[in-house]
Nucleic acid binder design. Structure first.
Lengths: 354, 354
DNA sequence: TTGAAAGCGCTACCAA
DNA sequence: TTGGTAGCGCTTTCAA
């Protein structure tokens, strides 16, 4: 068997407490005794205090959980999520805390079990729209958490690091509207649960259940309302996932009519890239005349010349982790809205008469 | 205080064992009693068995550690590392295991402490060349581990998922040699520890301490030896990190002479992209005449038209995790060498007379 | 400066 | 089907 602290104590002829002190509180014993103990430990092959036992006793784990409310493996394929994670890992690294990546199962019933089984001191929840069950489980466990968006059901003590989705969306949409576009389509991921890809009837922007999506749609809508384009004149396109392929499919479905939109405003860069794919596929006429905008400003956006809204991804992760690891004294400081910037590139241009 | 299993037992009037069974071994009690217990638990706000206590008792944690032998936050910026991690997470997800990301400190002295403190059942070690200390600590803890390369000091029981670095490197180098290139430069990350960026004197390929680098350099060298170009006629370029900027800097330093290389063979795609940057910067003459090859076949390689060696990144991660989670009955099956493919694109061409 | 005692919260054995 | 007992390996009072 692997040696335990007790074995070391026996070997040296001291008590367990003293061996424990040798590791955790060096000032509690003489340097000579400490050296003797550490030497004996090395000789016996004792690897130092068992982390699990230490956690149990201390009541602290030394790890925070990162919860992606989607396939964990998917999270790594999403550039924005990866950048967020980079920020989280920087903060964790600086704090000497480990990161537990928790894959959330698709079946609701198992969510609770997964969260209850995670040995962590708290959670960073990367919200993609399906986090309610997970948050309920976290609250029930009594663990602290930070989300990447203000939650509709948030109390004053809830912490989050988000952006002003509505204002950010409005900034791109204002730009598009100023270019003269009036026949526009808005492209979002899972605008309504279980809806098929393509055009979708949505009574109002606020009807999209996911707050991020509804916030962005609201901002888009405001900008067009300001130039006289009502909600009912706007096409909403649903993508069945935040992927290039899903974005392309949704847009392709909207291109069949005789009055295709002159601009597509997407809720993410990944979807926007898919929109560009669909337009390229549809032929040079549309590819050159339809404006497309994204959201996030991932690396590929620059390459593709995509007009988009930049949000500080790494910073979001860094702050989220910091908020979790070092709770602010004033709860009000637990609500952070990061600034965003409109980045105008070549994917948007004046509307062309046709 | 948060309720414990004992509190639930008291509330229902049964023993702790019974409550424990209600959670972990439903077949050990009547459905009626189980329901009663679970209801009481819900009423009291008992979140289910404490994961740490359960781990201590069971002797199993339910998480595997992923060790990047570099800044953890760096790992997320490296496309190959991210794809590896994707594979690991897929396997972990399927197995219901959590992933603990362990940031490895730069100071050697703290490596041991970090590893000793990680509550995991084993480690996937993503090798980038500085893993010896970490592996020693893992072995001392008696935990199983899998590496991403065969280790020179590996015993028969050691598990790894790698590629035949020498043969893979030889395949690109043969391609370059067949195109007529004889004045070539090899570009690697930290070929010798603490060496400055730029040309480097290396007595033999095997002198590079990192096995991956020395394996690739050896394969490159073999190909050129076969066409009469000896090691001493080959330039070795050192990059001070696996980044585009470091690759560019190293190549720029090699372009100053009057006899610049006609081909640059890099040990990674990221470095190769840096080489292309440097050549573009140096002007159209060099940019069009110098061939460049990479290694890994990351997504950007296709966009950049980079000739490279493809290795199955996700598969590497998936297998590494699988090898850790379900050790093969026959230790020989613990040594996996994945196939690689030469991918010829536009970054290589026949040598042009100058 | 050192040691004895008392758990942290849980599970697994075995007996009833 | 249920409960009693005995720890898992450690830290932390507190008293010597």
């Amino acid at each position: 068997m692997k040696p335990t602290l007790q074995d070391v104590a026996d070997a040296v002829g001291v008590s367990r407490s003293t061996v424990s002190n040798a590791y955790s509180r060096p000032d509690q014993l003489s340097a000579a005794l400490r050296t003797k103990i550490l030497d004996a430990a090395r000789r016996l092959g004792y690897p130092g205090p068992n982390p699990t036992a230490r956690s149990l006793r201390r009541g602290v784990v030394g790890a925070i959980g990162v919860l992606f409310t989607s396939q964990l493996s998917y999270a790594f394929t999403d550039p924005f999520a990866v950048r967020f994670l980079t920020g989280v890992s920087e903060a964790a690294e600086r704090h000497g805390t480990n990161l537990l990546l928790v894959p959330l199962p698709a079946e609701r019933a198992r969510v609770r079990a997964v969260i209850d089984n995670a040995a962590v001191d708290g959670f960073c929840v990367y919200c993609v729209g399906d986090e309610d069950w997970a948050l309920a489980a976290i609250r029930d466990r009594g663990l602290p958490y930070v989300t990447t968006a203000p939650r509709p059901d948030a109390g004053p003590a809830d912490r989050y690091v988000g952006i002003d989705e509505r204002a950010a969306a409005r900034s791109v949409a204002d730009h598009v509207a100023a270019l003269g576009h009036r026949r526009v389509a808005l492209l979002g991921d899972t605008v309504l649960p279980d809806a098929p890809g393509g055009p979708l009837r949505l009574a109002a922007p606020a009807d999209a259940p996911h707050p991020t999506t509804s916030g962005r749609l609201t901002g888009f809508a405001e900008a067009f309302a300001a130039v006289g384009v009502g909600w009912s004149a706007i096409t909403v396109l649903n993508a069945t996932g935040n992927s290039r392929a899903a974005g392309a499919a949704a847009v392709t479905a909207a291109l069949t009519g005789d009055q295709p939109p002159t601009a597509v405003l997407a809720c993410s860069d990944v979807l926007a890239l898919g929109a560009l794919d669909a337009l390229a596929e549809a032929g040079p006429r549309l590819a050159h005349s339809v404006s497309v905008t994204g959201f996030d400003d991932i690396a590929e956006a620059a390459t593709a010349g995509l007009t988009t809204v930049r949000q500080p991804a790494e910073e979001k992760g860094r702050l989220a982790a910091a908020l979790l690891l070092e709770p602010p004294a004033d709860p009000a400081d637990g609500h952070v809205l990061l600034p965003t910037d409109l980045v105008v590139r070549t994917s948007t241009g004046p509307v062309t008469r046709s």
